[in-house]
């Protein structure tokens, strides 16, 4: 098997073994056609899009998880130990859907200071 084939045979591996990001450098090592692999941040660090940052006030939070439910991006996760929600600021786009739908109004949209 030639080196070029070995290179893209890796794409056929399962999640753990395959490369996280494809990095082709020339015509000769490309696969037959464009195969994309799933990766977080396919559009980059979308957290950079934010103008306002959602901040949760855990004092007021009643753990209803509406923010988790309504987050379009899936950047809100639940901490199994505390039961509180956590926001992945790397990818949160700052749309404000969580804050609008919080029944206790405990999510504040704070202006990003960059």
């Amino acid at each position: 098997m030639t080196e070029e084939k070995k290179n893209w045979e890796l794409l056929r591996m399962n999640r753990e073994k395959r490369p996280k990001v494809q990095n082709w450098t020339s015509y000769w090592d490309l696969p037959y056609g464009p195969v994309s692999l799933p990766v977080k941040g396919s559009a980059g660090r979308t957290g950079d899009w934010r103008t306002f940052r959602p901040v949760v006030d855990n004092e007021k939070c009643i753990k209803c998880y509406f923010c988790y439910m309504y987050c379009p991006e899936g950047t809100i996760s639940v901490n199994d130990e505390t039961g509180f929600v956590e926001i992945d600021y790397n990818y949160c786009k700052g749309c404000g859907v969580c804050a609008t739908n919080c029944p206790k109004e405990c999510i504040d949209m704070e202006k990003e200071n960059k």
Binding site: R18, P31, Y32, G33, P34, V35, P38
Partner: peptide, 18 residues
């Protein structure tokens, strides 16, 4: 095929925008 396959364990997207 060697270049395109359907497998939930090894998901790929085929023919994306380039």
């Amino acid at each position: 095929w060697p270049h395109v396959w359907v497998d939930g364990e090894r998901p790929i997207m085929s023919n994306a925008l380039i």
